[in-house]
């Protein structure tokens, strides 16, 4: 850091407000779309794993193996097919969410009390209808808990995408390093943390609204 350079130059932030907002939007998209895609993959896989338990261990192992591959390596693999695009960042991030989301979908379905499942069957629900109208709604609190973890980790991981030029706010971090200029680094880091925290808070709120029935947890059925 140059002598006399302050940690934060507020005028820089003022000059770059518009640009920062654009990058924040991109960052959110890069962080949250993978969670959505991850959920779209995990719900059916989780249902299958719940129904046929023997599928679950290999599926979970596969998801964990994917999670263990360094993001850099995955970017390099996908860059050959999808180029230096947002997709190259989002595909690995989507794969990373699976190791959190699949177990949570399975645990969520397992949290449906057996009497409830039996009552649903005895009322005359077909299997598909029972899963959609009874089991999945009851699994929501556990699934949302997984979504919160996935969303926070995904938002902070986006910055790594800057290695292929698609890192959202990560751009300011590398830029600040190159210029030996701390203001953008600190600004981007704080913004990323804020994004993660606000997203988490919104998810908690969404869950409250979605599951008014779950407030007395433990007293169900």
């Amino acid at each position: 850091m140059r002598d006399g350079e302050p940690l934060i130059r507020w005028d820089w932030i003022g000059d770059h407000i518009g640009e920062l907002a654009d990058y924040t939007g991109v960052h959110l998209r890069l962080g949250l779309l993978p969670v959505l895609f991850g959920l779209i993959i995990s719900v059916p896989l989780g249902i299958l794993c719940h129904r046929w338990r023997w599928i679950y261990p290999p599926t979970l192992t596969a998801a964990n193996v994917l999670y263990s591959i360094p993001s850099l390596a995955l970017f390099m693999i996908f860059v050959r097919y999808t180029g230096l695009t947002e997709r190259t960042v989002m595909i690995p991030l989507t794969l990373y969410t699976l190791s959190v989301l699949i177990p949570n979908v399975v645990d969520g379905l397992a949290s449906v009390p057996e009497p409830v499942r039996q009552a649903a069957t005895a009322m005359g629900f077909s299997t598909v209808r029972r899963v959609v109208q009874v089991e999945l709604p009851i699994a929501v609190p556990v699934v949302v808990a997984g979504v919160r973890v996935a969303a926070v980790s995904s938002i902070s991981l986006v910055a790594v995408g800057q290695l292929i030029g698609q890192g959202g706010l990560g751009y300011y971090i590398t830029r600040g390093l190159q210029l030996d200029f701390p203001t953008p680094i600190i600004t981007a880091t704080v913004l990323i943390m804020l994004l993660a925290l606000v997203t988490d808070a919104l998810l908690v709120l969404a869950q409250r609204l979605l599951t008014p029935w779950a407030r007395g947890k433990g007293a169900t059925a």
Partner: peptide, 8 residues
Amino acid sequence: QHAGLFPH
């Protein structure tokens, strides 16, 4: 026995 009501 435990009613098995749908909690949601």
